[in-house]
Design a binder for these strands. Structure first.
Length: 618
DNA sequence: TCCCAGAAGGTTTTT
DNA sequence: CCTTCTGGGA
């Protein structure tokens, strides 16, 4: 494979970068912290820098780039971009979530962890709830310590819990490991276990350092203390070059243990150079101006970004919509979306955002939207033990869906190549092994033929979809799936995902008369996503409607809670074209300081769209 | 034992 | 914002 000279390298798949981004991209001898506001193209920058390092050989074979994100969709988004920008080198790019990385580590090196901390093969992942921990503290007589403080101490105490460590922390670890076969580990615990192994086991540490010469961190303002320690132990002094991107104004994970000022900590520890990006590629100038007013409230020194995107809609781009009560609100919103969809807007490009309790909003809105034939997709809804949103990001889904699509249609070249590529990866067949490729191709042909026959013979029912799924799974082989993907290494992890896929497929049969409709339902084609602000972080939508900007629904949005204002900023900055906020008089009052901020930025407070009148408020 | 004032907690993620 | 808990005083 031929390498490109650094000075000849050009951006891949996009027109270009802003000047500062080039600076940060060409800095290869030392670590860089890239700070940039919403829509500055931080993820795209990482994809471009990865392509640059790989295609020029600055990151040379067999070394790899480790890209760590905090959210699953961010990790797969980055991976997809790299595959599109630089397919020939993408396999040297590992894009993974922090928790996925540490869990995979435990699953591989479990036995390298000394007793009594060796996780049993069947350990489970636990999500601590404060009530249980409060009970634990009372039962064990640990007074003067609440659940949050204990979890914080557990997260911050390195293994092996030596003399300086608090008794409560020791007792907590012991209780989590108490019934040895049933050990329940939380992610901070897993993080500590991994940090310990890397610190103590120089063989593993050397292997890790030898594998990754470059480390990328997406949204690094969300880094927690144990995560920071882990990166430090793993790479400090190894010569690995870090590229971290993030935005102080989008720190909304403090409650989950994110560091107070990860920015300065990283800058100092990595001796990094800081570069600031100044463009906004997401939103048009009108929205960017309002965003900047909010940004200045968060940080008065914020520089005004350059809007690079065009306004493409008529009418208002931002407003607070008032409704007398939740029913008028729900039917008004439903009617508004129905009209917009009729005019050509794709529901999938929009979002309804809430601060919390997406299930309650779903219950209030869904039936009114269904009357207008708009289906709301609550992406946080659980199917089995996995969220709808996560089902679609799974490697299993990405091979099952194209196979089922091939069964559902007679000619679908896109699905064919997706399925074939996934199969090649699954079986580890290399690009130049033509014989193996041909064998796989004919296996695929045979299978698709028989799947197609089965699907044509049976209309989509719950039983039929279960049978087709079973056929696909048998063709792929659980054994092969588990060997090919580190995250499916343990049977229970594959089962958890597989059960979720099966359940979502089963649900997707409702209202479908054709197999292709089942798959569209499954993937959310034509549905309007509903999610929390936290889930929306890192995503973008044509039109954003925030549901519930009142002092009851968002009770925590007060002037003395900066993290809530940042959450508001995150919500607002998801919008490419339009951002609306709803307010219900029967539900609560307007949050006055936010209202003043918006009014000063030129956002008006108007009567919300009406269920009947076609002319109002658009 | 009852009453009342003031404090504290709740929501949001991660395989 | 609203609900629940806590502690002091009668």
């Amino acid at each position: 494979m031929s390498l490109v000279k650094p000075e000849d390298w050009r951006t891949q798949g996009i027109d270009g970068l802003e000047e500062n981004a080039w600076e940060a991209l060409r800095e290869v001898s030392r670590s860089v912290c890239v700070t940039a506001g919403a829509g500055a193209g931080k993820t795209e920058f990482l994809a471009q820098k990865a392509a640059y390092l790989l295609q020029t050989g600055l990151c040379a074979e067999p070394q790899r780039i480790l890209a760590i994100s905090f959210k699953r969709d961010a990790a797969s988004n980055l991976e997809r971009r790299l595959e599109a920008r630089c397919p020939e080198q993408a396999r040297r790019f590992t894009s993974i979530t922090f928790d996925g990385f540490t869990k995979g580590f435990i699953d591989r090196f479990r036995l390298a962890i000394p007793a009594p901390f060796t996780p049993p093969r069947g350990y489970r992942i636990g999500f601590p709830n404060f009530r249980d921990i409060g009970e634990f503290l009372t039962n064990r007589g640990f007074h003067g310590l609440n659940a949050g403080q204990l979890l914080d101490q557990v997260a911050r105490t390195p293994l092996p819990l030596d003399n300086g460590c608090g008794e409560a922390v020791r007792a907590y670890w012991k209780s989590q490991f108490n019934d040895y076969d049933e050990a329940i580990l939380t992610f901070p615990m897993i993080n500590r276990l991994v940090e310990w192994v890397i610190r103590e086991n120089h063989y593993i540490r050397r292997a890790l350092r030898g594998t990754f010469s470059h480390v990328f961190l997406d949204e690094f303002q969300d880094t927690t203390y144990p995560q920071f320690d882990l990166l430090d132990t793993a790479f400090q002094g190894s010569g690995a070059v870090f590229t971290a991107v993030g935005d102080r104004k989008q720190c909304i994970m403090g409650w989950a243990g994110a560091m107070d000022d990860s920015f300065s900590e990283f800058e100092a520890r990595l001796e990094a150079r800081t570069v600031e990006l100044l463009s906004n590629w997401r939103s048009h100038a009108g929205l960017v101006e309002i965003q900047h007013a909010i940004a200045q409230k968060i940080d008065p020194t914020t520089k005004s970004p350059n809007a690079q995107s065009e306004l493409t809609v008529d009418g208002e781009v931002s407003a607070v919509w008032m409704f007398p009560n939740p029913v008028v609100e729900a039917s008004g919103l439903a009617a508004w979306f129905a009209r917009e969809i009729e005019r050509g807007l794709s529901p999938q490009d929009c979002v309804i955002l809430v601060r919390n309790r997406a299930d309650i909003a779903e219950e209030q809105l869904a039936k009114h939207f269904l009357k207008r034939e708009v289906k709301i997709r609550n992406v946080a809804r659980m199917v089995g033990e996995i969220a709808v949103q996560d089902v679609l990001e799974e490697a299993l889904t990405q091979i099952v869906v194209p196979l089922l699509r091939l069964g559902a249609s007679n000619n679908d070249p896109g699905s064919w190549s997706a399925a074939f590529d996934a199969l090649l990866r699954l079986h580890g067949v290399s690009e130049d092994d033509e014989q193996a490729q041909e064998r796989l191709q004919s296996r695929l042909q045979t299978f698709v033929r028989s799947l197609r026959a089965q699907m044509q013979a049976a209309p989509p029912t719950e039983e039929a979809v279960a049978a087709m799924y079973e056929m696909v799974l048998t063709f792929l082989s659980r054994e092969v799936l588990r060997n090919a993907s580190p995250s499916y290494r343990r049977e229970q992890d594959l089962d958890r995902v597989s059960d979720g896929v099966k359940e979502l497929l089963r649900e997707s049969v409702v209202d479908s008369t054709e197999w292709s409709q089942v798959l569209d339902q499954f993937e959310g084609v034509g549905q309007l996503p509903l999610m929390t602000i936290h889930k929306s972080k890192g995503l973008e939508f044509h039109t954003v409607v925030f549901h519930g900007l009142d002092d009851q629904t968002w009770w925590s949005l007060t002037a003395n809670r900066p993290e809530e204002l940042r959450a508001f900023f995150v919500a607002f900055t998801r919008a490419k074209q339009r951002a609306f906020f709803t307010l219900c008089h029967s539900r609560g009052k307007s949050v006055s300081w936010i209202e003043e901020l918006l009014m000063a930025a030129g956002v008006g407070k108007t009567q919300g769209p009406n269920a009947e009148d076609h002319s109002s408020a658009s």
